[in-house]
Amino acid sequence: MRVLACIKRVPIPGAKIPLTDDGTAVDDERLGHTVSPHEECAVEEAVRLVEAHGGTSTVLTVGPPDAEEQLRAAVSTGVDQAVLVPTDGADWDPQRTAAAVVAAIGELEQADGPFDLVLFGNESADAGGFQVGIRVAVALGRPMVQGIKEVEVDGDTVRVSRPTGTTSEVYELPLPACLGVREGLNLPRYPTMRGRLVSRKATIAEVTVDGPAGGQSLVALESPPEQEVETEVLGSGPEAIERVISVLEDLKVLT
């Protein structure tokens, strides 16, 4: 089977997210980069599905040329092919991103045949628009469910489930299908030494496509006001227990 995982390069924030002087972007010059934990699981699932069923796995990103780093990281954990849709460096809005992904999938499928599964992270770590995967699926006319934490391919069907608090909803989608997956779907592997070597030499294919800008335009980013909390230290070690109990009683969680 052919499985595609779509990822997005994002900075790794520390205790606080630094902003550029004009306040319109995260100042990521001193930050490392990665992909969302959801997308790490999408990449891992693509590799596992191909290990179990045969075929090829592909990873795709819409992003700046530096996103090659995240594509190579995916290759180092076993993905067969990597595709970059280069942007000008700016963060595209969800409609434009989705249109570019749809166009890129069109080109890749024209060349090598359809993808049975297209996997997305449930939402990106930074923008968190919760929609690019759904827009792509609707444009392709394929079924799509978000929030997936179990995937099982059986013939031309994929059985998936998503947790909803105390229950799990099960869906059975006909292939080809799209899924928005969540962290917890699997435990992503670390790259092997050989994987690292392969990824360094891997060819990153480029597909240059674009879509029209959507109606949403970013004005500025802002760190939420830090809630000034006066921390009351109840004590050190077990001597604090009595005061902890009176706190719990005051809150009526202990009666």
Binding site: P13, D126, A127, G128, S217, V219, L221, E222, S223
Partner: peptide, 11 residues
């Protein structure tokens, strides 16, 4: 954004 760690003002 970032699960609530950052606000975005948008038009």
């Amino acid at each position: 954004r970032w699960g609530g760690s950052l606000f975005e003002h948008t038009r």
